[in-house]
Simulated scan of single mutants.
Amino acid sequence: MIDMPPRSAGPAAQDATDIRRGGWLERWLPAAVGPYARLARLDRPIGTWLLLFPAWWAITLAGPPGAAPDWRLLLLFAVGALVMRGAGCTINDIVDRDFDARVARTRSRPIPSGEVSVLQAFLFLGLQCLVGLVILVQLPSLSIQLGVGVLGLVALYPFMKRITWWPQFFLGLTFNWGALLGWAAVAGEVPLAAFLLYAGGIAWTLGYDTIYAHQDKEDDLRIGVKSSALALGSATRPWLLVFYAVALGLFAAAGIAAGTGWPYLAGILVSGLLLLHQATTVDLDDPVWCKRHFQANRLVGWAIFLGAVADRLLG
């Protein structure tokens, strides 16, 4: 189903760092801009996709049967997700700069490596937030209120790994806020279906970000950082199945509450098969496999989105 790389040698694998050199950033961007692009993770778009999909699902499900989702809203939320994911990464890297310098995968990030100073990172953060504000004010008033409301979660998330074993839950609260924001942008309200979609996204995030956290579990344990990967340990795999089963059930319930039919449920079925494959085949002791299985959640997002679009078009 999903092609996987050859099994690596473990922590010393080729993907020990999440900063890739020689890619399109260095080929196409001026040298002075590259560190800021890496700070915003423009070279690793998976986080933007995972932030965007709940909003795209909501925009589609909140629309009327027989019509395609509003392409202007889809585009607006896409740009917003790109900018605000970058802002979130910037905040996270400012707060975690000392931790990042002590972890093999993150020590070459722009701030701990010295490419970007803390002051420069704050100025860049302000620029990203300004662009995000310009995008937000294009939306209806309820969406603007919700957009302002999520800022507290964005600011608190980087500190969660210091005080709870479940920072992944707080990431889920933050990353899936677009389900509420997107629904409000279309319908001017946030009904039960939107909250079901939001809750399903939180469960989905608990699964995929626990896989992601297994990349750093040895370093996290050494430096005192908490994560669901460390909390669950050898019990992670069955819990992945639980998280994903809950997510799929809530996604399906959201669709039923929104009056969807078989095309949307077909998308849920496809996403379920992808998640089952992911949870049962990932090698949680291999950072390369964890990274690839985490990135495979883009396919899950597309399956649900395309099922929702087909459902509305055929409705």
Rank of each mutant, 00 (worst) to 15 (best):
residue 145 Q to F: 14
residue 115 E to W: 01
residue 114 G to C: 08
residue 148 V to H: 03
residue 105 R to Q: 09
residue 143 S to H: 05
residue 167 P to K: 09
residue 150 V to T: 10
residue 180 L to P: 02
residue 130 L to Q: 03
residue 137 V to T: 14
residue 170 F to N: 02
residue 121 A to D: 04
residue 139 L to V: 11
residue 174 T to S: 13
residue 125 L to P: 08
residue 162 R to C: 12
residue 155 A to G: 07
residue 138 Q to T: 13
residue 137 V to W: 14
residue 135 I to C: 15
residue 179 A to G: 05
residue 128 Q to H: 10
residue 162 R to F: 12
residue 165 W to R: 02
residue 157 Y to P: 07
residue 128 Q to V: 06
residue 151 L to W: 11
residue 132 G to Y: 06
residue 105 R to K: 12
residue 156 L to D: 01
residue 113 S to M: 10
residue 164 T to S: 15
residue 136 L to D: 08
residue 178 G to D: 02
residue 151 L to G: 04
residue 149 G to L: 13
residue 151 L to P: 02
residue 136 L to C: 05
residue 175 F to N: 01
residue 169 F to M: 08
residue 168 Q to M: 04
residue 103 V to G: 03
residue 151 L to M: 15
residue 159 F to A: 12
residue 152 G to Y: 09
residue 125 L to Y: 12
residue 171 L to P: 03
residue 137 V to L: 14
residue 167 P to H: 10
residue 114 G to M: 09
residue 140 P to K: 08
residue 172 G to H: 03
residue 163 I to G: 00
residue 142 L to W: 06
residue 178 G to C: 05
residue 126 G to M: 11
residue 130 L to G: 14
residue 162 R to Y: 12
residue 160 M to I: 03
residue 127 L to R: 01
residue 150 V to I: 15
residue 163 I to Y: 13
residue 130 L to H: 03
residue 143 S to K: 04
residue 116 V to P: 03
residue 120 Q to A: 15
residue 151 L to V: 15
residue 135 I to E: 11
residue 166 W to T: 00
residue 121 A to S: 12
residue 103 V to E: 08
residue 161 K to P: 02
residue 119 L to A: 14
residue 121 A to N: 04
residue 112 P to S: 11
residue 105 R to C: 07
residue 113 S to Y: 11
residue 160 M to S: 00
residue 177 W to K: 01
residue 110 P to K: 06
residue 138 Q to N: 12
residue 112 P to A: 11
residue 168 Q to I: 04
residue 139 L to R: 05
residue 124 F to W: 15
residue 106 T to C: 13
residue 154 V to M: 11
